[in-house]
């Protein structure tokens, strides 16, 4: 890794002020589970790294009658183990519990999980200057695309690696961002951006903005939510495809469905098609099957990831049946 200056931040505003307005010059570190790999492999070579772990209070998880507020420094492990989250925000607890390994969950933070960079093997290879790194092509198109996108791809075909993001979007979370112009709050769904907007980034953050916290409105008492993740091994693995589902159930009829897919698109992929097949409908096996096929009807697989279409279709159907 290249040498860099290491600066401790006392608060989020100061962290923002320590960051450059240009990408690549400075980076923030919290758990460091993703960043250190990038630095060691020369994928990123910042001159300065700003440590957020010295900001007190930013790791709090607060639950009240209106909802849940999670500081960006809360660890993924703390979220997974939080009794209220397990009870009322099940999809989030399940998604957090499925992240990586216990060691990584113990240090990895929510902010880091939302902002982590893709695991694409072309992006991660410092010798390859792909579109995501300012080059002129996405190597997955002609190359090895086993783990790449079937939705929303083009011109870059990475998949967003976060497990917590689909869960939070399914629950209608908002995110608070602090930057040089103060703070702003937006739906988490709008935080993530497709590569046709900016092929080099996965979200709207400017280089000197920092994610401060996430707020999740309390789901209605009759909401069933859960996270299903397909991966190649039982732990320490990213989703080949995952489904974060939150369904408001009136008896066996679905009052409103949120279906957000992970591991299949450059952003957490909201499946409006699957939701439309469920809203106001009595859930049966046939409905679940239809939701699955609706979910993938616009899928565009690359050479090696056709299996993700069948996989995603089956996972959506399974998720719907789980809610019934």
């Amino acid at each position: 890794m290249e040498n860099f200056a290491y600066v401790n931040a006392a608060n989020v505003e100061q962290a923002s002020s320590l960051l450059s307005g240009e990408w690549g010059e400075t980076m923030v570190i919290a758990g460091g589970t993703d960043l250190l790999g990038e630095l060691k492999e020369y994928v990123e070579t910042p001159a300065k790294v700003v440590n957020l772990k010295t900001i007190s209070g930013l790791d709090e998880i607060k639950a009240d009658a209106t909802g849940l507020t999670i500081g960006a420094l809360a660890t993924v492990g703390d979220i997974a183990a939080h009794p209220t989250i397990q009870e009322d925000y099940t999809v989030l607890a399940e998604a957090a519990a499925s992240v990586a390994s216990p060691q990584i969950r113990n240090v990895g933070t929510l902010g880091g999980n939302l902002c982590q960079r893709p695991r694409c093997w072309y992006y991660r290879n410092a010798e390859i200057i792909c579109l995501k790194k300012g080059g002129d092509m996405c190597y997955a198109v002609e190359g090895l695309s086993k783990y790449h996108a079937i939705f929303g791809g083009g011109p870059v075909y990475i998949v967003h690696p976060s497990d917590t993001a689909p869960a939070l979007i399914a629950l209608g979370a908002t995110v608070k961002i602090i930057g040089p112009d103060g703070e702003k709050t937006m739906p988490l769904e709008e935080f993530f951006i497709l590569p046709d907007i900016n092929p080099q980034r996965e979200n709207v953050l400017e280089p000197n903005e920092v994610v401060a916290e996430v707020h999740v409105p309390k789901p209605s008492a009759n909401t069933k939510s859960f996270y299903i993740k397909a991966r190649e091994r039982g732990s320490f693995d990213f989703a080949l495809s995952s489904v974060a589902a939150a369904l408001e159930m009136n008896g066996s009829t679905c009052g409103g469905a949120s279906i957000v897919l992970g591991g299949v698109a450059p952003i957490p992929w909201r499946s409006k098609e699957a939701e439309a097949a469920l809203n106001g409908v009595r859930i049966t096996e046939a409905v679940a099957k239809r939701a699955g096929s609706e979910a993938v009807k616009h899928a565009e697989p690359l050479n090696d990831n056709g299996y993700k279409v069948a996989l995603t279709q089956n996972l959506v159907s399974r998720a719907v049946m789980k809610a019934s």
Binding site: G143, E232, R233, S235, F236
Partner: peptide, 23 residues
């Protein structure tokens, strides 16, 4: 996993998937 130029694409324990105790 090699790409067409002969670069190993998964030269880490994260990407080269050995079984864990859960497997």
């Amino acid at each position: 996993i090699y790409d067409k130029d002969g670069r190993m694409s998964n030269a880490s324990f994260l990407d080269y998937r050995m079984p864990t105790c859960l497997d």
